[in-house]
Amino acid sequence: MLNIVFLMGRLTSDPEIKTAEDSRFCKFNLAVQRPKRKNDKVAEADFFNCIAWNRNADVICDWFKKGDLITVVGTFRNHKYEKDGINRVATQVVIREIHFTGNRKEDSIAYDFSYDPEEFEEIFADEDVPF
Rank of each mutant, 00 (worst) to 15 (best):
W53C: 03
C61D: 00
S114E: 11
F100I: 02
G9Q: 12
I95Q: 06
V73H: 04
W63K: 11
L69W: 10
K41W: 01
N29T: 05
R34F: 03
E44H: 11
F28M: 06
R24G: 07
P35M: 07
F47A: 00
F113L: 12
R24Y: 10
R10M: 13
E119P: 01
A45V: 15
K105R: 09
I98A: 05
I109G: 04
R10W: 11
F76K: 12
D112E: 11
D58W: 09
A90D: 15
D68W: 15
V5P: 08
D22I: 09
N29F: 10
D107E: 13
W63C: 14
S23D: 13
T12V: 02
V93E: 05
A125I: 01
S114Y: 01
N78P: 10
S114K: 04
P130V: 09
M8G: 05
F124V: 07
K27T: 15
G67V: 11
Y111H: 07
H79Q: 03
N29D: 14
R77L: 07
E97S: 10
N3P: 02
N56G: 10
I109N: 04
A20M: 09
F131D: 10
A125H: 06
L2P: 06
D14P: 05
H99G: 10
V5K: 12
K65S: 15
A31T: 04
D40R: 00
E119M: 14
N39D: 13
K83C: 09
K38E: 15
V59K: 12
V32Q: 05
A45D: 01
R77Q: 15
I51S: 04
S13Y: 09
D62T: 08
I86W: 04
K18C: 02
T75P: 00
Y115Q: 02
N49A: 13
D68R: 12
F47T: 03
A20P: 01
N3Q: 07
A110E: 14
I17G: 08
N49C: 04
N78T: 14
F100A: 01
R88T: 02
D84L: 03
P117H: 08
G9V: 04
E119L: 13
F113P: 07
D107K: 11
I70D: 14
F6A: 01
V129Q: 01
M8R: 09
K38Y: 10
P15R: 07
N87S: 09
I123S: 12
D22G: 06
E121C: 00
L2S: 13
A125C: 03
F131R: 05
R96D: 11
D62N: 14
A52V: 11
E118L: 12
R10G: 13
R37L: 14
P15Q: 03
I51E: 00
N56Q: 13
S13C: 03
E82T: 09
W63S: 13
E16F: 06
H79C: 04
N49V: 08
E82H: 01
F131K: 08
P117N: 04
S23I: 13
V73R: 12
P15E: 02
N87T: 09
